[in-house]
Design a protein around this nucleic acid. Structure first.
Length: 492
RNA sequence: GGGCCGUUAGCUCAAUGGUAGAGCAGAUCCCUCUUAAGGAUAAGGUUGGAGGUUCGAGUCCUCUACGGCCCA
């Protein structure tokens, strides 16, 4: 434990004094009849200096105190907002008032009293009785500037939430966004399911997994990088429409847009293809934007994003042509491709295929320009081992990714349901893995067995929830939309 | 992994290489419509850590920890 400062010691002394006076500083419960927002709703009409005889009871944390001799104004904060209280010696009596004066900012109290409106027009509770509900031993951050230090804000999110009112708003939006998606999918008869987080094979995406160990079984398990292969097993099983909202884990770097654990919604719809999934994707995101912001325009990091109407749709090669200025629609030789990449300062290895290099050009030169919602379609087969080929074109799959604010937000395809083709693709992946590509996928025999039982045609979609929340809350860093982002451990 | 920036009182921030300061919070006192309440007094620091240069280091150098931003 760090060294105790003067303020901590002061509060410890007050705590001891309270106990000596038989005041319980941590009582078991308190029944409130109101919260701050309901008080505003019910009594907001009160004119200046008017009062209402209704007795209200509410609880909250003392955020500010203005002590004036025999009377004190304070502000309480609860989950719904802040409300002013007014405590007067002549109303609560000498002993109680003396006790009130020993309270500190940060203490949690319950109050009972009547609502009135001050001369300056602020709705206030005239306290008749108060109860200490929890003594705070640590001081609050600066009341005007709040808690600014980014490291402390992430490490001690509880202090961040107490001191900076707008932080909770982000997480209310997050909750609302997820509820909206659930509601829409439930209306469409999707079944919400839970599939393993610990998997014997980490499949469904190109990413490095975390490894853990099960002692009783004495086997290594991977934290999942995606739920895809399990959800599609459920499609084989006949559930037809399933979705899961949960964490994925990827053992990669941490940045403003990557957290090792992040939240995805994945959904699969039997008998649909990627075009239908594209409509569903747009419907979901549009509804979330509308529900959370009230409009279809969003200000994101200096750009005005419009979610109204149809969203731009282009193929990968069209996007590379338009935004990187290089035309791969007319076929190029490998030599030409490498020269173009070199000219664009895009790095590649000798083992990279042509499409791999084009994809890298896309990632480096195009993604950052995809600010407005844009569907990129028709990905190369070799980079999409779980997606179904476009009709009559073995090089291209029916797949799209959605980009918003220069970030990949969603990924979807018509799911590959040909078990023999899938085996071939997984064997190719395995070869790449053996050549040292750590992100190439593993061969999952049980998944192939499932496909051999017959999976209906199916469209699948994954949406990165954290990034979606970043967009609708105009957050620059993924850490601002994750309550407890991953940090290097501190020395406490 | 590389580059740049940051780390000073509980919090928010100052301080040409020359006595580490302010506001808020805390303490004591005054104050019954304040709201960043006000007034008075006193107190609060191993300047992230370890070395080095210097008569003298918060400031310059090296290493290191943590964080931020950018690049890979």
């Amino acid at each position: 434990m760090e060294e105790l400062n003067d303020q901590y010691l002061q509060r410890r002394k007050k705590l001891d004094d309270l106990k000596a006076q038989n005041v319980d500083p941590y009582p078991n419960k308190f029944v409130a009849t109101f919260n701050s927002v309901r008080i505003r709703q019910q009594f907001g009409h009160l004119q200046q200096e008017a009062e209402d005889p209704t007795v209200v009871v509410l609880a909250g944390r003392i955020m500010t105190m203005r002590l004036m001799g025999k009377a004190c104004f304070a502000n309480l904060k609860d989950a719904s907002g802040r409300i002013q209280i007014y405590v007067r010696k002549d109303k609560i009596g000498e002993t109680e008032y003396a006790l009130f004066k020993t309270l500190d900012m940060g203490d949690i109290i319950g109050v009972e009293g009547m609502v009135f409106c001050t001369r300056t027009g602020e709705l206030t509770i005239m306290v008749q009785k108060f109860t200490l509900l929890s003594k705070a031993l640590r001081p609050l951050p600066e009341k005007w500037h709040g808690l600014k230090d980014i490291e402390t804000r992430y490490r001690q999110r509880y202090v961040d939430l107490i001191a900076n009112d707008e932080v909770a708003d982000i997480f209310r939006v997050r909750s609302k966004a997820i509820k909206t998606m659930r509601r829409i999918l439930d209306e469409k008869d999707f079944l919400e399911v839970e599939t393993p987080m610990m998997q014997p094979l980490a499949g469904g995406a190109a990413a490095k997994p975390f490894i853990t160990h099960h002692n009783a079984l004495d086997i290594d398990l991977y934290l999942r990088i995606a739920p895809e292969l399990y959800l599609k097993r459920l499609i084989v099983g006949g559930l037809e429409r399933v979705y899961e909202i949960n964490r994925n884990f990827r053992n990669e770097g941490i940045s403003t847009r990557h957290n090792p654990e992040f939240t995805m919604i994945e959904l699969y719809q039997a008998y649909a293809d990627y075009n239908q999934v594209m409509d569903l994707c747009r419907e979901l995101i549009t509804a979330v934007v509308k529900e959370c912001t009230g409009k279809l325009e969003v200000e994101y990091q200096g750009n005005n994003l419009s979610f109204d109407g149809d969203w731009k749709r282009m193929t990968l090669l069209e996007a590379v042509k338009e935004y990187a200025g290089v035309d791969f629609i007319t076929p190029k030789t490998m030599g030409e491709t490498k020269k173009i990449a070199t000219d664009l300062n895009v790095q590649f290895t000798d083992q990279d295929t042509q499409y791999k290099i084009i994809n890298t050009i896309f990632e480096e030169c195009v993604e950052k320009k995809l600010v407005q919602p844009t569907f990129i379609c028709d990905y190369p087969t070799e980079l999409s081992p779980l997606a179904k080929n476009a009709k009559g074109n073995p090089d291209i799959v029916e797949r799209f990714e959605l980009f918003i604010g220069a970030q990949e937000l969603a990924n979807a395809y018509s799911e590959l349901n040909d078990p023999l083709e899938q085996r071939k693709r997984m064997e190719q992946q395995l070869k790449q893995r053996e050549r040292g590509d750590e992100e190439a996928q593993m061969l999952d025999e049980d998944y192939l067995r499932a496909l051999e039982h017959g999976m209906p045609p199916c469209g699948g979609l994954g949406i990165g929830i954290d990034r979606l929340i970043m967009v609708i809350t105009n957050s620059a860093s993924i850490r601002d939309v994750i309550l407890f982002p991953q940090m290097r451990p501190e020395n406490v």
